[in-house]
Design a protein around this nucleic acid. Sequence first.
DNA 1: CCTGCCGGGGG
DNA 2: CCCCCGGCAGG
Length: 491
Amino acid sequence: MEPKRLPKRAAPAHREGSPPPGLTGCPDCGPAGRGGGGGGGVVLPAGKPGANAVYTVLVEDARRRRRRGREDPAAVAAAAAAAEPGGARKAPKSPLPCAGRELPAEAEAADGWLRRLADPLLLDGRTAEELPRFPAAALGRLAAADPKTMLRVLDAGLEQCLALHSAYIPVPRQRKLSGQAGLDEVMAAAVLTSLSSSPLVLGPPPGPPGAEPGAEAWKEAPAMSSSCSSSSNTSGDWSWDPASDRSSPSTPSPPLPPAAAAAGRLPAPPPGEEPDGTHFVFGDPIPRKRKNSTKVMFKCLWKSCGKVLSSSSGMQKHIRTVHLGRKADLEQSDGEEDFYYTELDVNVDSLTDGLSSLTPVSPTSSVPPAFPVLEAPPGPAPALASPEPARPPQLSQSAPTSLCHVHTDHAYQGCPAPLRPIAVGEKRPPVPQAPAAKTHVVPTTALPKPPVATRKPRGDAKKCRKVYGMENRDMWCTACRWKKACQRFVD
DNA sequence: CCTGCCGGGGG
DNA sequence: CCCCCGGCAGG
């Protein structure tokens, strides 16, 4: 697969002029219409970090309702009809939402809404009545009927279009903080941030607004900024004239740089920033102030965690204490402790800016940072105190959930296969992944990693075949039945 | 031999 | 997805 493929941008329709009034999307996607350039993307003015909870709640609620089996049948039918119109199933990860893909009707509606939200013209004009209501219903219905589809659609739309179009969204630098505005933005931000941001970018809970100068803000979203610049190849100079932008009555201020918009700095009024329009230019070829001083961090992959620590030993300690519920210094009895974490190179600046709360010092901190884990069932996922103590924990239970964007270098890399941590000694190569991110699983007792055998070392545990015998084959675990690695009697 | 299980293929 | 199995490799 080619995760790196980026949209080939058609010749920009309006290279140097101001964007068509009322158009928030890009020239490729066009406003929410379908056909021609494609079915739309979602644009976002800014995300409020932490607001993703709203979205999660939305989906969770939908799931709950669905589980209870009282969802609106009409909605289900509608979404189902829209969800899999043949093509979507076969090619679930179209590289670009803008590339001739049809959005389910509901999603398109939601998209339209979000698009409108993103439009400061409308935002400032405040058509508040319907805005908050519609999306909840639409998103909710779609989520209820087919959360996965909705996720896919929105995700794709966000990933790409956020990067592609953010330059088109003039984000007012100063905004009156009316109550309803906050609501709308939070809703939009919720959906968008939850889907488009890596946990890294999500960063800290809402801090003091305007804490840092706006000129620095864009560094908080390295992923976005890099994808923006990388996708600007064919037209590095397409941005609207800041002067005309400023002349617009309803856009009081020039747009922020794309990444700044993505990083959720919407209401932050950077005091004393010079109104220089140049550096928000979409394809600004010069990455300013990008220090290439990177630091290796370690990110916990357990469900609902995502803690980032600066040392592997600290991470192991964290996992041991927080997730495995062990005493920090107690030696593991069976020596079969798995650590799931990932190594990532992070920009030091973005670290200090956006991750201050994610770089914890105390490994015993029991409050995991919130980031979207939609699959996570409520409660602590890894059931260590299993009702059946005799049965060793199965990998699928104890393994943390997958992460899509551990380290995002480009605009969109779907979530190819769940990034599953490799078990000890397993020789399967890791799922292809963004560079500079490696998944670690280290056995406790052998922290100085033993040489990896060419083949998985024979398990000496009794396996289903031995235990139950051929005649009781139906008692085997499925893996054994399928001649796979035994799941019941893991070594 | 027997056994565990990877890789691949079919439905 | 679920399921099966050829074939390899360790014992």
